[in-house]
Amino acid sequence: MTRADYFVLAGALLLLPWLYASYWHRGGVGEEVRIVGADGREILASLRKDREIRIEGPLGTSVIEIHDGKARFVSSPCHGQLCVHAGWLHLGGEFTACLPNRVSLAVVGPELRYDTINF
């Protein structure tokens, strides 16, 4: 290994803790899920109510299930099925997506819902 190699390795190892400190925020148990489809349309669904949501993307229909305070991709017409393998999400900030079908699923806590309340 050259000196430059060690320098790069050290940089990488310093970068990681910093990334975790900056972005690894996990909220408490989530309140609802925000689903964003290919056309940018958003669906916000409560985690307290069991239901199945079908959302159309460029490849076909992605099916998302909400059950017992958790949400997951049941199926998606993508090649990798990564979103399906991600399994159940239930914590605020948890996130998965079917990139090929352009559908994302994120659990949000109540604090993200509104920036302010008009009353």
């Binding site: 819902r113 509104y114 302010t116």
Partner: peptide
């Protein structure tokens, strides 16, 4: 920014990449 005096608010710009979101009581 948003300035919200309870029953009345004025919003300018956005919350970064997404718009400001306002809940109505």
């Amino acid at each position: 920014a948003i300035v919200n005096a309870g029953g009345g608010l004025h919003a300018i710009g956005a919350h970064g990449d997404r718009p400001w979101r306002v809940g109505i009581r």
